[in-house]
Amino acid sequence: MAILDVQNLTVDFLLDDGGTLRAVDGTSFTIDSGEVLGLVGESGSGKSVTALSIMRLLDSQADITAGRIIFDGEDLAQKSEAEMRTIRGQRISMIFQEPMTSLNPAYTVGDQVSEVFRQHLHMGFGESKRRAIEMFERVKIPRAKDTYGKFPHEFSGGMRQRVMIAIALACGPDLLIADEPTTALDVTIQAQVLSVIQDLQHDMGLALLFISHDLEVVAQMCDKVAVMYGARLMEVGESTSLFAGPRHPYTDGLLRSIPRRGQPLTPIAGTIFDLRSPPDGCRFHPRCPYAEDRCRRETPELRALEPAGDGRLAACHFPLAGAGAKA
């Protein structure tokens, strides 16, 4: 059963010059309880805006102009700010890309974790402190007890991200949104933090929306993958089969642009369009090697592909053949 069901999510930014920019355009996807969905795409494709919409933490210039965000049967897009506050940090949590700045420099990390217990579970200081230390142990911060009274600046990026994970998972949420949680970290640290997330996701049976542009990491972490390009979803599918046989030329291009030993590196030609003036038809057509006339005129909807049954969706008039085509 889907814990999160995003339907036709559309987010518009009101720009300073009076124009609008559609940062997320009719995006739909679902995440089941305990499932990991990877959201990938180039910089500026709308991944963070999607995540922040679910949290209802968008900037004031941004507005959810259409769509529904069904979480556990209720539409978050319709919730009041007060209702959202009981959901954020308790039932849906989020960790961010920038571990160095995401914690409050003026408070101890212990306070920043125990605060969540006091806020949502109405615990006293003693109880919340005990629980915070437990969380530090769960995210494998060494000397959890001594950690409590320390300040963020006393920790490295990797440790700070663990503190963020401790904050996010403190109240045992149903859904965790991780927006490029390791992009800012060294490769070795990255692996450690990912394994902490993966272990806890597994232990707690968390649904996880994992945003990244690192396809290797997504392949390793995720059950399902959604590929975003210029505010729209291009392809959604089960992770192993999608990586083995992409059906959308954009996904194919993305996979080909990963450096691999023994294979020529072929980056996708051209650059992403300006979101203020998206191209007609398929948004990828100016860069697509297979584009035809129809692609320039008609916008392809995200739809199930033949052979039915594997759950693959793609927004393409002329999808690739899949696993067979790559060989």
Partner: peptide
């Protein structure tokens, strides 16, 4: 960013 974190905590 820490303000966004505080809001994300509910």
């Amino acid at each position: 960013d820490y303000v966004r974190t505080a809001r994300a905590k509910g």
